[in-house]
Amino acid sequence: MNTKETRLQQELERLRAKLLIMCASVDVALDNASAALYGGNPERVETVLRGDAAINTLEMEIDDMALSILARNQPVAHDLRFVVAALRMVLDLERIGDEAVSVAERALMLHARLPAAGMRIVNELMDAARALYARSVEVFRAGDAEKAMDLRRNEDEGSKKEMLALQRMVDYLRGRDGREPDWTPDAGLHALLACRALNRIRRRSVNIAEQTFFIARGENIKHIRSGTDGGKAPPLCYALGEGIPKA
């Protein structure tokens, strides 16, 4: 049976291209937020804030494109799954963009007031979140269900590392690491809020990989347990209590 490219295929290709543009825009936002954290550069913060409006516009455009395709073409099978996944992914991407803004907004203050020991932890979490996001986008770009599932499975380990980093942050803020507290309360609060934003970036990056799996295989693995903790990062508040996984 020969296949041909229909008008619907062209529209789906445009939708995919737009999604990848949004992925790239969010990546740029994360890059700038990271640079702002590391270097305390106000121009990078400004770039993140300006870029967020463009990300929001992309969200609305993709939303409109997906609705139009559903209304006019009634796609089925892989095409339907792709459009449904696009509608879900666009929410995650927009929220990752918002979290990048949240981090960027605190970056200058943290850079100025949070001592190096605390900044190292925030930067470590930032690097991990960016790496996971980049992997999830690559998995989506390749449409690779196996790699999407691998990312989901490996996230168990990633979330444990994150919890340990958060535990170190909590120990640091409580002065449990043996040092005299050298941070101000507002710096401590913003450090925790930045950590929470980075935690959310990780979680939403996993969602993107889950949507890639859904597109390829038609199975929703969002709530399928893959480990003792269900394959999802434990809530951030665990880091403030007992029962934190040990290295």
């Binding site: 041909k4 619907l8 099978a77």
Partner: peptide, 19 residues
């Protein structure tokens, strides 16, 4: 059949790629 067809021939037909 309309969300997860098993065979490519079916998918190509129902998605209009068949030609």
């Amino acid at each position: 059949i309309f969300t997860r067809p098993r065979l490519k021939q079916t998918e190509d037909y129902i998605t209009g790629r068949f030609g």
